[in-house]
Simulated assay, not measured.
Amino acid sequence: MTTFPADDPDKAPFAGVLPAAPRPFVLGNGEGEKSLVFDQLFNILLSADETDDQYGAFTMVGPKGDRIPAHKHFKTHEIFYVVDGEISVWMDDQADYHSKTTLTTGDFAYIPANVVHAFQIHNTTKVFGVGTAGFERFFHAMGQKTDATEPQGIYVPDYPTMRAAGEKYWTQFMPEFQFRD
């Protein structure tokens, strides 16, 4: 992955929230770099800047909703750990692994790069995620900056915004992909 410059439009609006260097720090409950994407609040807790380009960490909180579109990340490995709630995760490696699993509080999923995946929240759910360094700010590229500590409202990015975020963060949206349910 590539660490993006300080003036990158996906991180410049958040300057000073995280230390932007690998040094110790603490965030209080609800602190971090926050963006609303659709009806989900993404909060970046740790970025490539703080981990010497190793990984990024974030939380996602969202209400019950529709399944997000299928997509895959070409360079990003992701984990989902359900802190509270219930979420279904679809994964398909386009070879021999096809699954739909409903995760509840305490459950964990790993999605390697190039695996098509999607998720659907079944009730208000909080997920802790970790991904390959640099990817964490994909949520800023797709979303709208917010100071909210809970998801409020809906922000639907237009298709050019989604496409640009996908290109920048090595993600392909695959809305026509059919999972084996």
Rank of each mutant, 00 (worst) to 15 (best):
T3M: 11
F4A: 12
F4E: 04
P5K: 11
P9W: 14
F14H: 12
F14S: 09
V17P: 00
A20F: 10
A21T: 13
R23E: 15
F25V: 15
G28E: 15
K34E: 02
V37A: 04
V37K: 01
F42L: 04
F42Q: 01
N43H: 00
N43W: 00
I44M: 08
A48Q: 10
T51A: 05
D52V: 08
Y55Q: 07
Y55F: 15
G56D: 08
A57R: 01
M60W: 04
M60S: 11
V61G: 03
P63V: 04
P63I: 04
K64W: 02
K64I: 09
D66Q: 14
I68Q: 05
A70C: 05
H71K: 11
K72S: 04
F74T: 09
K75A: 07
E78F: 14
I79A: 05
I79R: 07
Y81N: 08
V82H: 00
V83C: 01
E86G: 10
S88G: 06
S88Q: 07
V89Y: 02
D92N: 14
D93E: 07
A95Y: 10
Y97I: 06
S99I: 09
K100C: 05
T101N: 09
L103R: 03
G106E: 14
D107C: 09
A113T: 04
N114P: 00
A118Y: 01
F119Y: 15
I121Q: 01
H122R: 08
N123D: 10
N123M: 10
T124N: 03
T125L: 10
V127R: 08
T132W: 11
A133Y: 08
G134R: 03
F135N: 05
F138P: 00
M142K: 06
M142A: 13
T146W: 04
P151R: 05
D158C: 06
D158F: 02
Y159C: 01
T161W: 07
M162H: 00
A164E: 09
A164R: 11
A165V: 03
G166D: 04
E167V: 08
K168I: 08
W170K: 11
T171L: 13
Q172N: 09
F173M: 15
P175W: 14
P175R: 10
D181V: 13
